[in-house]
């Protein structure tokens, strides 16, 4: 995407942000609260309309497309405030993702590689595979409404994978996970990227971001204040002052 600007009334939430994610790359997006990270996600997937700038998916300009059209081009996401289908069970959540995908043409190949399938699995098998891969196998029939936040986030991820995206936007996927789970999750992300998925990761767990991301972008007051390799970012004074604090 490039030069994205978003305004809410008088408040400018994003100013001229440009950012790219390559195939198989994990890009971290960090920044203080209210910096505009979630807004950027919303702009990318068409939930808010930027007042300027454009969004491209695999080279194609999608700025004028609806949310669902963008999704069909291979864009998947999770939400900071959970948007699970809480009246359905864990497996039905993922199943809905798979079934919706089946109603349109299949495209993203990367998730398929990750799942090591030939792409034409029966729905049930695909759902089981995803659940198992995310370690949710034992919870298949649990209603999502009664899951702890951390697991519900994994369900969202599973649902998004069911749509076989090629780019995945993750908004604080690890909040609610404990330390060992976060470590597992980090490995999961690396695996996904290894299968060719491009991932844009928003997270306040700086440790995780520094571990898994090849490239980090720091947002403050709606603009990019720093970007580069983890070490570069960590050393950047502006970032330390605005976000990390002296403690880290």
């Amino acid at each position: 995407m490039s030069g994205v600007t978003v305004r809410f009334g008088g408040h400018q939430a994003l100013t001229d942000v440009s950012l790219g994610v390559d195939e198989g790359q994990i890009v971290g997006l960090i920044g203080p609260n209210g910096a505009g990270k979630t807004t950027l996600f919303n702009a990318v997937c068409g939930v808010v309309t930027p007042s300027a700038g454009s969004v491209r998916i695999m080279g194609r300009d999608v700025s004028n497309l609806n949310t669902h059209r963008r999704a069909r081009l291979g864009l998947g996401r999770t939400f900071q405030r959970l948007e699970v289908f809480s009246s359905l069970t864990v497996s039905d959540n993922v199943r809905v993702g798979v079934e919706i995908r089946q109603t349109w043409e299949r495209r993203g190949t990367t998730a398929r590689q990750f799942l090591a399938t030939d792409g034409n699995l029966p729905v049930d098998a695909e759902v089981d595979l995803i659940l198992e891969r995310l370690g949710l196998g034992g919870l298949a029939d649990v209603p999502v409404g009664s899951l702890p936040t951390g697991q519900a986030r994994l369900v969202e991820l599973g649902r998004a994978l069911g749509a076989r995206p090629s780019v995945l936007l993750l908004d604080e996927p690890a909040s609610g996970l404990d330390d060992p789970e976060t470590a597992d999750f980090g490995r999961l992300l690396t695996d996904l990227a290894g299968a060719g998925l491009g991932i844009l990761l928003v997270e306040h767990d700086v440790g995780l971001v520094m571990d898994v991301c090849e490239h980090i972008c720091v947002l403050d007051f709606g603009s990019v204040i720093a970007s580069g390799d983890p070490e570069v970012v960590r050393a950047n004074e502006a970032v330390v002052a605005a976000y990390l604090g002296a403690g880290t």
Partner: peptide, 24 residues
Amino acid sequence: SAWGRRLTAMRDSPVACATLGLNL
């Protein structure tokens, strides 16, 4: 059916459905 599940899903979270590629 799948359609029924989808309707329920849409009721629970329209935005999530849209980001999965559902034409609301």
